[in-house]
Every structure is written in C-alpha cells, then in structure tokens.
Design a protein around this nucleic acid. Structure first.
Length: 517
DNA sequence: TCTCACACCTA
DNA sequence: CTAGGTGTGAG
C-alpha cells in the first residue's frame, strides 16, 4: 500500500484543463482559466511538456477532507500528510527522464484560528519559511517508469521546526498551504536547473490544507482515523473498544470514541470553502484545476520567474511572493543511489502501488525554464542521481530543496548542490517581501532569470497577464515584488548546518522556481 | 499552542 | 520480529 495504495481514484479524468495539446493560442487569461475548468493552460508548451496530464489519486478522499477543511499535523520530527499525495501521470515521453518533485506554498497571507467550530482569519501570515522541495526518490526516472504506476509522495514529511535538519518541508502552524507537483525534464546529468529546463507544475486545489500542531476540527480527526490505516487503533466506537482503550489508558473511559467525544461533529465549514475558499480562489475554479498553465511559455518573464507561484492565492492576487525554494535536499540514500546512479534507468525501487488513475486535475503550467530547482543539472552529482553524500542521517529520503528566494540571478547559476540534507534553508532567503501590488516586474527582479529566459528557446508567448486569474500563475507576480528583500534571513540562518551552507554558496542555484521574486 | 510518552497498528 | 506511523491527553 504504501504507494499505491489505496484504491484508485476514481475515474480518471484527466484534468481537463490541461489540455495537452498545446493549445494554440492560449489564452492565458488566467481568469479564464479560472473560470473555465477547461483548461486553458496549455499554452504552449515546450518540449513535450504539453501533453502531460496528472491525475490526483484518491481524489474523492481529498475532497472529503477539503469539504471540511483539511488539516495536516506538523511536528518537530516531521509528520506525513494524510491523505497521501499520489498521482497518476500520463503523456510523458517513455524514454525521456523526468524529475518529479513537490513543494508546498502558502495558500494566502493570513493566519487562521479555529473557534466556534470554524476557521477564521486572525491576522497576517508569518513570513514563509524557506521553501523546500521534496524530490521524489525515484527521480530521475523515465517517463515509462513514472507512467507505470502511481507516483507516491507519501513519505514527504511536514515540520514546524524552522531549523529542521532532515529536509522535511517546513510550515507554519495555523497557516494555509497548497501542495504543488512539478514535473521537470532531466538534463543530461539527470539533474535539472539548467536554463532551458522544461517543466510543468500541477496544482490540485483540493489538496490545500491548514497546518496545525494538533487537530482543531473534530471532523478532520474522525476522517483521519477512519481512513488512515495507522490510526486504526482509534476506530470503532464499540463499547468493547472503548473500554479497551479506557483500560489501556487507565482512565475512565469515555463511552464514545474520544475523538468523537471531544467535539461533536460540527459542521463547521471548512475554511477552504467558506471564506477560505475564497482564499483559494473561487471555489469552483479552484477545484477545477487551474488550468494548466504550462509554463511553457516562458516568454514572459513573469512567468518564468515564477513559474511556480509562491503563494497561491487565488483570490488574492497578490500574495506574496513566495518564497523560493532553497535548495536542499535530502535523499534517502537508498533510493537515490539506485536510481541515480544509473543514469538511465532506475530501477524502480519503489513500488508504487497504484494503479489506476485517479483523477485530478491540475493545472499546470509548464514552463520551460527555470526549473525549479535549478541546480540539479549542473552537477551530476547533485542530480538526483545519487548522491552520495549523505546526510548525516544516512538515509536520505527524497531530496529536498529549499529555496528561499529565488533570485533569478542566482538561479542562473545552475549549480546547486544537492548535497545534503541540510537545508538550505538556512541561507538567507527572503521570504516574502512585501507584496507589491503592481507587478513590478518580474523581469527586473528576475533579471537574472531573464537570462535564463532568454535562453529559452521555447517561449511561447507569454502569458501574459498576470492576472490573477490564474491562480497559479499569478504567483509569478507575486514573486516579483518580493524579491527584494530577504527578510527572513535572520531566522534561517546560521550556519547551523554546514551542509546548508555549503549549499549556500550554491545558493545560486537555488531554485527558485517560485518566485521570482 | 505546542511537546511528549504512550498504546496501538501497519508494514 | 522490528521499525515506524497514528491520535491521545497530560503537562
């Protein structure tokens, strides 16, 4: 189960959005996209990224959580997400190697509180942490490999420890986030990050969640218990069980399952839906995948820059810039080695389970350029391929990259290091800069990018508008402004980890997908 | 809010 | 069997 898991999702529907075919013109109007589920996105794509479709596995389960307002526990040691993020990918060139990775960007710039059985905004979000990227342990692998079974990101862990040394994705409690999947064409070194790297990003709005240190909405607790095999011990409201548990605990026991007891079911709205949803974007729109925007076009700087948006806010156009990911990655050696080493194929290490399809849609925007994590390519080493170094930990799991801010410039540097586990986070980054309403130009900011961009052979057109419409896309905008400052730096810091530091210099490489800030 | 030891379970 | 993922509930 691990990977595959569960059942399949439902039918497969690809996201409609993404149209594979590159649509011609695209409209990119984001807005359109939003509205129409259909996909807009596609714009052009490049290098074959346009025909890629991604289906969220177990979408129905995700939807159940989303309707209530998904909460994901974050702990110092790192906690897995549940439901697990698993996707079915089609449209990849069987012989081409791709790197699949995820990042989780702020869903908006608010801090939430749960009171009266509902989520509400309680203030402004804290600066985002350095964004980290979770590179799927099978990366790089051929399109045939990725298409063979479900691609599971179930080992990805979330933490609230800003100094996390394990490479887990760092989030702030009581803040909303949006997971994103990036498919990057591996370069000759099995890495990515080079200038022209082609990639596309897929976002499933139903996977958005609020990070918490303990569950707030009892309904979520119940859904977790009912659906997560590891929580089976909390299932059942039979008297027997209750008694049993009570005994175990030594306390008096509740007649009802604890969880149940605590909160009654309330039907509070999900943050997502209600207000939140707004946050997300329009609900509907949201659900629909955004369209994909494929990044293809990199033409516009904007896009390029922020291929990946940092924050997602649909509704809010502005959000911030997101952060950019820093480089970091940890990988599990096991996996990595295998895969990596070969340049070519990877053995599968993992079995994925799945099979079928799920659906989901995503929108993605493929873009060519900047890959998110840049850097990989440069070094073969880095590359997903193996990696030798390991982390202290010894094992690596997937690779993580953290990006902070991305400066495009830096990006240009392709180097990244993958080394270690440590996070780059430490490096200073800028988290979110203040948002600027206007788009500053990404260009500028991104100048560096520009370079890249220019490279880009493909650009289609640009998308133009940054409108908010597209949620995804927008991000770009976001980023741009941001770039300027790195606020965060302070936190990060230090050199706690050498490793990181190492990276740091590498930093250039930082992937910045996201933002261009 | 957050952290931890804990019993229970999966794998 | 071991390793490690769960929510719990006290602190």
């Amino acid at each position: 189960m691990a990977n595959g898991g569960d059942q399949f999702g439902l039918a497969e529907r690809p996201d409609s959005d993404c149209m594979d075919p590159p649509k011609e013109t695209k409209q990119e109007n984001p807005s359109l996209t939003l509205n129409s589920p259909s996909s807009p996105q596609t714009t052009s794509s490049q290098q074959g990224m346009e025909g890629i479709k991604v289906f969220l596995h177990d979408r129905e389960l995700w939807t159940k959580f989303d309707e209530v307002g998904t909460e994901m526990i974050i702990t110092k040691a790192g906690r897995r997400m549940f439901p697990s993020y698993k996707v079915k990918v089609t449209g990849l060139n069987p012989k081409t190697k791709y790197i699949l990775l995820m990042d989780i960007v702020p869903g908006d710039d608010h801090r939430y509180k749960f009171a009266d059985n509902k989520w509400s905004i309680t203030g402004k979000a804290e600066p985002a942490m350095p964004g980290r990227l979770y590179v799927h342990p099978d990366s790089p692998a051929t399109g045939a490999h990725w298409s063979r079974q479900l691609v599971s990101f179930q080992k990805l862990k979330l933490t609230n420890n800003h100094l996390d040394p394990f490479g887990h994705i760092i989030l702030n409690s009581m803040h909303k986030y949006q997971p994103r999947l990036h498919i990057v064409k591996a370069d000759e070194n099995n890495g990515f990050g080079s200038k022209n790297t082609a990639f596309c990003t897929h976002v499933f709005s139903e996977t958005a969640f609020i990070a918490v240190t303990s569950y707030q909405n009892h309904k979520i607790t119940q859904l977790k218990i009912e659906n997560n095999p590891f929580a089976k011990g909390f299932r059942g409201s039979d008297d027997n069980e209750l008694h049993r548990m009570a005994k175990l605990q030594g306390k008096d026991y509740p007649v009802v399952p604890r969880s149940t007891v605590r909160q009654r079911a309330c039907s509070s709205g999900s943050p997502f839906s209600g207000e939140s949803r707004g946050l997300r974007g329009s609900p509907e729109a949201v659900r629909s995948p955004f369209s994909c925007e494929n990044g293809l076009t990199r033409s516009s700087p904007e896009e390029l820059l922020s291929p990946v948006p940092s924050h997602y806010s649909l509704p809010h156009p502005h959000l911030q810039p997101g952060q950019q990911p820093q480089v970091y990655h940890c990988t599990k050696r096991k996996v990595v080695e295998e895969n990596c080493s070969s340049g070519n194929q990877h053995p599968y290490k993992k079995p994925f389970a799945g099979s079928s399809p799920s659906e989901g849609e995503s929108y993605y925007h493929p873009s060519s350029y900047p890959p998110p994590p840049s850097g990989l390519s440069a070094n073969p080493v880095l590359g997903l391929t193996d990696s030798p170094y390991s982390s202290d930990m010894g094992q690596r799991q997937a690779c993580m990259f953290a990006g902070s801010e991305p400066r495009m410039d830096e990006l240009s540097c392709t180097s990244w290091s993958y080394t270690c586990p440590l996070p780059a986070a430490m490096t200073p980054m800028e988290p979110y800069p203040p948002y600027t309403p206007h788009p500053p130009y990404t260009h500028q900011s991104s100048l560096p990018l520009g370079e890249h961009i220019s490279h880009d052979p493909y650009q289609t057109h640009s998308p133009g508008p940054p409108s908010q419409s597209s949620q995804n896309i927008h991000n770009r905008q976001l980023s741009s402004p941001l770039r300027e400052y790195p606020r965060y730096t302070p936190n990060l810091s230090p050199p706690l980890y050498h490793t990181l530091e190492t990276h740091t210099h590498i930093r250039c490489g930082v992937p910045e997908w996201s933002a261009a800030s």
